[in-house]
Computed example of a mutant assay.
Amino acid sequence: MTDISPREPLSSVINRHNLAARHSLGQHFLLDPGITERIVELSGPLEGRHVVEVGPGPGGLTRALLDSQAASITAIEVDSRAIGVIEELVAEAPDRLKIVQADATALDLATLCPAPRRIVANLPYNVATPLLIGWLRQAAQWERLTLMFQLEVAERICAEPGSEHYGRLGIISQWCASCSQVMRLPPGAFSPPPKVWSSVVEITPHGEQPSPELFRAMESVTATAFGQRRKMLRGSLKGIGGERLLQAAGIDGSRRAETLDIAEFDRLARCFLETTPSGKR
């Protein structure tokens, strides 16, 4: 990376803008430039890529993205206090950085920049999971997502069948993308420190993605299967035609949800969609 110019320390920026982290917004700021630079490096070569960052806060990761070869950076921030901070960085690179003041959960991020697109973000922890599910619904629009989560959530995203963290989030994530943890950070890496460790997850969408209808079917099947995860599948899936679905998918009804792999859940979702065209329960 190439440093553009000396910048004011982030701690000073936070004080000047009265930008103390708010628990209600799930804010935990990354202030160490060595860490933010490493996250950008882990996101892969960014030359010619258009990057979306969600929750830039005081702009630590934004600075590292500006120092990369990214063609453009679009920062999405809901906190009005942080807008002035990012606007100062926009003044530094008005042709590459723009700020959108909005709730990212209500936006279609793929409409904000051209392809090839990536998301690189230290996500607000209180909305990280719904944000990820929303982006997976349109995974074909993204080349790669490099995202910071609480460690427990990262472990769920990357969990293997039969493990304690395996469930809906991991199945849907790995159904749509290759997922791996690439960096773990202790609480002290953040300001203020969260109560748990955090992890950066690299998510690379598969070349072929499910249709919206099939995605909804997978959501329904996994929600039902794991809603009573200690039950055998013939019992947990009873409300959506369990025996019929299991027979059509060639799956033993005495098994439990956590023992099925992604391919088996894919078969269940496709069978469910065949009998429920809307993909809804």
Rank of each mutant, 00 (worst) to 15 (best):
P9H: 02
R22P: 06
S24P: 00
Q27S: 04
F29S: 03
G34H: 09
V40Q: 02
E41V: 13
E41M: 05
L42V: 06
L46T: 03
E47D: 13
V51M: 03
V52R: 00
G59S: 07
A64T: 01
L66A: 10
Q69F: 08
A70M: 08
A75D: 14
A75V: 02
A75M: 11
V78G: 07
S80K: 07
S80Q: 10
G84F: 13
I86G: 06
A91H: 10
A93V: 09
P94M: 15
P94R: 15
V100C: 03
A102H: 09
A106R: 09
P114V: 04
P116T: 07
P116Y: 08
R117D: 00
R117Q: 03
A121F: 15
N122P: 00
L123E: 00
N126M: 06
A128K: 01
L131A: 01
L132M: 04
L132H: 00
I133N: 04
A140D: 14
M148I: 13
Q150E: 06
L151H: 15
E152F: 06
E152P: 01
V153S: 00
R156A: 00
C158E: 12
G162D: 09
G162Y: 07
S163D: 02
S163P: 03
S163F: 01
S163N: 05
Y166V: 01
G167A: 03
I171S: 02
I171G: 09
I172L: 12
S173E: 08
W175F: 15
A177M: 06
S178W: 04
M183R: 05
M183H: 05
R184T: 12
R184M: 11
L185R: 08
P187K: 10
G188M: 07
G188H: 12
S191K: 08
K195V: 09
V196R: 13
S199Q: 14
S199D: 05
V200N: 14
V201F: 12
H206F: 11
P210I: 00
P210H: 11
L214Q: 05
F215Y: 13
R216V: 01
R216T: 01
E219D: 12
E219R: 03
R229E: 05
G235I: 08
G235D: 03
S236Q: 12
G239Y: 07
R244I: 10
L246K: 03
L246V: 04
L246F: 11
A249S: 08
I251M: 05
A257Y: 03
E264N: 07
F265D: 08
F265Y: 01
D266I: 04
A269T: 10
L273T: 00
E274R: 03
G279A: 07
G279V: 05
G279N: 12
K280N: 07
K280A: 06
